[in-house]
């Protein structure tokens, strides 16, 4: 697995922390999956409840890499300001950069994304951009200073899996040295395994685990699938072909007509 800004990860599972039925279920999902990275966010805090403080203690106890996001940001300014606030609170240069451009699909605004990525990279951030599989945009993001790319598999929360296999395969082939993460749209462990089989370095998901009937079991299923997919990719899979090719040797076959 390629390192992320020089940081090697123990495995390719990046797990979100939202939508779990309880903090304990969240902790169990991380414990059982061994996820290497937890994605987190920033929201308004109440001086009375101070709910964010308890959540921060819970995240610290997970002992994983923390990847804050700019979820919900629709403009460059909003995303850049949020990134600065996240860097101070979470004490990390990593930022999962989201600049949302369209409400129905939550598709990234790739123009704003490139601009925000450039501003943040120049300011010392290590940007994980949530992008599409568009190769031109990917190239612009790399030139803006990104050293990781995170194309979507499908719209956030849709669970549809990898919608554009050709595009994702092309991205892997086009940027052989860049760490690539499938971010969003994953619904089943088989989707995650497929991403890893394509040669991706990690899979970032949240809803598929948090909204499962048994989130901890589903988290383990994803971890297992990601491990299987990575083993398969490292084992150099056979190329597919259109026509059958007998696997049992024909030499020595009896003549029984």
């Amino acid at each position: 697995m390629r390192p992320f800004y020089g940081e090697p990860l123990a495995n390719g599972l990046m797990l979100g922390t939202a939508q779990y039925p309880s903090p304990k279920v969240l902790s169990d999902a991380f414990a059982r999956s061994g996820a290497a990275v937890a994605t987190v966010s920033l929201r308004r805090e109440s001086g009375r409840d101070r709910a964010g403080q308890d959540f921060w203690e819970l995240i610290r106890a997970l002992d994983v890499h923390v990847l804050p996001n700019t979820a919900g940001c629709h403009s460059v300014k909003e995303a850049v300001t949020t990134a600065h606030m996240a860097r101070e609170v979470f004490d990390t240069r990593w930022i999962k950069l989201e600049v949302i451009g369209e409400e129905d699909t939550l598709q990234p605004d790739v123009f704003g994304l490139v601009e925000a990525a450039r501003i943040l990279s120049e300011d010392g951030f290590q940007v994980f951009p949530y992008t599409t599989e568009d190769l031109v945009v990917a190239d612009r993001l790399l030139r803006a200073g990104c050293e990781v790319l995170m194309p979507w598999g499908a719209p956030i929360g849709s669970g549809m899996g990898l919608n554009n296999l050709f595009g994702l395969r092309a991205m892997r082939a086009h940027f052989p040295d860049v760490p690539l993460v499938i971010d969003a749209g994953i619904g089943l462990p088989s989707h995650a395994a497929q991403a890893m089989e394509l040669g991706f370095d990690a899979v970032l998901l949240n809803t598929a685990v948090a909204k499962a009937g048994d989130p901890a079991a589903m988290a383990e299923a994803f971890a297992t699938a990601i491990r299987a997919g990575q083993l398969a990719a490292d084992a150099d899979p056979m190329p597919p072909r259109d026509m059958a090719a007998p696997s049992t040797p024909l030499i020595g076959k009896a003549f029984l007509e």
């Binding site: 922390t17 939202a18 987190v40 966010s41 308004r44 709910a51 964010g52 804050p68 979820a71 609170v89």
Partner: peptide, 9 residues
């Protein structure tokens, strides 16, 4: 605006 750590995906 006063923001604190919160759940995120």
């Amino acid at each position: 605006e006063v923001l604190a750590p919160m759940q995120g995906g």
